[in-house]
């Protein structure tokens, strides 16, 4: 793994709607495993935050998916970056990775809320042949833009506050109706409450805790 801790140039900053944007920047030789994250800050600022890598392992640039938070000390600065600006990148970090030896041939269940879909985008960009089921929980229909790019038959979108998507309600409400094999390897990424609830549901279905991988977004 080739680590990086330096300033690199921003290549693109693309608005997705619903307060989210895709920020792309130079890779500068960084090597990562799909599912890992980076620590980012704007040069000159002390504040840094961690963001999962959205792009695939083989892509020429690095991309992260960022939700602009009201009063956010980092996300608002990142939102204002333009191509050519500098960004400080440190990483990669994390263990939310697909280990082929463990997961090949097993049913794969991906559970994401909001921008927690980011590492799954990287999974699929890295391994387009991956067989999986993705449940993506969002609050509003506009947030469904985040799950564009996934094969339609593999994604179940759950919209909690509006009618729309595949399912109206919280992700875990949909999960509880699904048959879950104890062989399943489940990857959970997003807010704590979803992860707690899904973790307990999966355990109750006989999925071993070492087959449940979590990445909490704060």
């Amino acid at each position: 793994m080739q680590a990086l801790s330096s300033d690199v140039r921003v290549l693109a900053n693309q608005r997705l709607g619903s307060g989210c944007f895709l920020l792309s920047f130079e890779r500068a030789g960084l090597v990562f495993q799909t599912g890992q994250y980076l620590s980012l800050r704007v040069p000159g600022s002390r504040e840094q935050r961690e963001y999962s890598i959205y792009s695939g392992e083989a892509e020429a640039q690095l991309t992260v998916l960022v939700k602009e938070v009201d009063g956010g000390l980092v996300s608002q600065r990142l939102a204002g970056l333009l191509p050519g600006d500098l960004i400080h990148v440190d990483g990669p970090f994390g263990y939310f990775t697909l280990e082929p030896a463990r997961v090949t041939g097993k049913p794969l269940l991906f559970l994401a809320t909001g921008t927690g879909i980011s590492p799954f985008h990287s999974f699929v960009a890295t391994r387009p042949d991956l067989e999986y089921t993705l449940l993506h929980g969002v609050r509003e229909v506009a947030d469904l833009a985040l799950s564009c790019g996934f094969a339609p038959g593999r994604v179940i979108t759950c919209v909690s506050r509006e009618n729309g998507g595949t399912f109206h309600g919280r992700l875990t409400k949909r999960l509880v109706t699904m048959p879950i094999s104890p062989e399943t390897h489940a990857f959970l990424c997003g807010n704590c409450d979803m992860i707690y609830e899904a973790f307990d549901l999966l355990r109750a279905e006989g999925v071993s805790s070492d087959q449940i991988y979590t990445e909490v977004y704060f």
Binding site: Y95, C192, Y196, F199, S209, D210, I212, T214, V216
Partner: peptide, 11 residues
């Protein structure tokens, strides 16, 4: 999980 400890009680 909230502490981001990357292990469970089973482990």
């Amino acid at each position: 999980i909230r502490m981001n400890r990357h292990h469970t009680m089973d482990r």
